[in-house]
């Protein structure tokens, strides 16, 4: 008689079944206390990593603040798919002003709460990578520098997906976008450009900076919770795969996020006061091809002529991350 072994851990992750954990360690998403801050019915694409990331992060922030939360939102996918007039998916006080001013709007909200003596009300600002690393960068840096009491969350999908997949300063090298076409001798986005926003945030000396991925729910929630324990400027950078822009199957969103971590392409860590205080280690390093192949934005690296030289450069960058953040578990 055949039998199915019971696994307490999902394959390849540390994710443990929620019911096996004590109550205080259970994920917000799997409790009845979940606020559904970003409610169902919105217009995100199937498999949208940003919708998932926003839901995880904001629900966790709601839990951490006992519902005393206000959100400012940059123009972008998240804003467009969540608030098509006269409908809204947001069950929290929420404002969208412009593409490039979200951090400053959040500063204003935080100032209003402070002056009114409502220090229990906390403020999050959220935007995509374009609204964060490019057009909103000035306001974001100002908010960091003044150490305003705001948690800024960047949902990084590596490009301007809302406007039809154009390059941003968070688009990875070699990736095809509408403005970095897969043509010519160096197809896709060029090497040696782009901003590392988490490091830039750390250079401001703000109390807390972290990166997260949507495949590690409990880690993401823990970072939101940790962020809410600080006053002052905090920054959370979440990698959110985009089936539309990355060109992967919409069922692979979680897998792509996990591979970004396990290849070393996206280091998952946290830092306090500008110093790295924790990293999410990798048990087994995955070659970058496994991450690149399912994504059509990298298709030109595999056919018609394999570009092993380019893949090697991507692998080298991943290896550097692994060395730099000591991502591999000690044997």
């Amino acid at each position: 008689m055949s039998f199915q072994p019971i696994k307490f851990y999902q394959t390849g992750t540390f994710t443990v079944g929620n019911r096996l954990l004590p109550d205080n360690e259970r994920s917000v998403q799997s409790t009845v206390r979940r606020t559904n801050s970003l409610n169902s019915g919105h217009r995100a694409c199937q498999g949208c990593g940003e919708a998932l990331g926003a839901r995880y992060a904001i629900d966790a922030a709601m839990e951490a603040t006992e519902g005393q939360l206000i959100a400012a939102n940059a123009t972008g996918c998240l804003e467009v798919f969540s608030t098509p007039y006269p409908e809204t998916s947001w069950q929290i006080p929420w404002i969208h002003s412009l593409f490039g001013n979200t951090a400053a709007v959040a500063t204003g909200i935080a100032a209003a709460m402070r002056v009114k003596g409502r220090s229990e009300v906390r403020v999050v600002a959220q935007g995509g990578d374009g609204g964060t690393t490019d057009i909103g960068f000035g306001c974001l840096s100002g908010m960091f520098e003044r150490n305003d009491d705001v948690l800024y969350i960047c949902y990084d999908n590596g490009g301007y997906m809302n406007t039809g997949v154009q390059r941003s300063s968070a688009t990875p090298p070699a990736a095809r976008t509408a403005t970095t076409a897969a043509v010519g001798p160096t197809p896709g986005n060029v090497f040696g450009q782009g901003k590392d926003l988490p490091l830039i945030a750390m250079a401001h000396g703000i109390p807390y900076v972290a990166t997260a991925i949507v495949s590690e729910l409990r880690d993401l929630e823990a970072k939101v919770r940790r962020a809410m324990e600080f006053r002052g400027a905090r920054y959370l950078h979440i990698l959110v795969p985009c089936p539309l822009g990355w060109g992967h199957d919409s069922s692979l969103t979680i897998r792509m996020a996990r591979l970004a971590h396990e290849t070393g392409i996206f280091p998952v860590f946290e830092a306090e006061g500008g110093e790295v205080t924790g990293v999410s280690r990798i048990r087994r390093q995955v070659p970058v091809e496994e991450y690149l192949k399912p994504q059509k934005r990298y298709a030109h690296l595999f056919s018609p002529k394999p570009r092993e030289d380019v893949i090697r450069r991507i692998q080298e960058a991943a290896d550097r991350n692994i060395r730099k953040y000591r991502l591999l578990e000690e044997a």
């Binding site: 001013n101 400053a104 709007v105 500063t107 204003g108 909200i109 209003a112 709460m113 002056v115």
Partner: peptide
Amino acid sequence: SCEFINVESEFAAMSVAIGAAAAGARS
């Protein structure tokens, strides 16, 4: 009972005012 914020640009000045006014503060 007034927050005075030195911002980094006029764009931020108006944006901070937007956030503050939306949260009910005279800006």
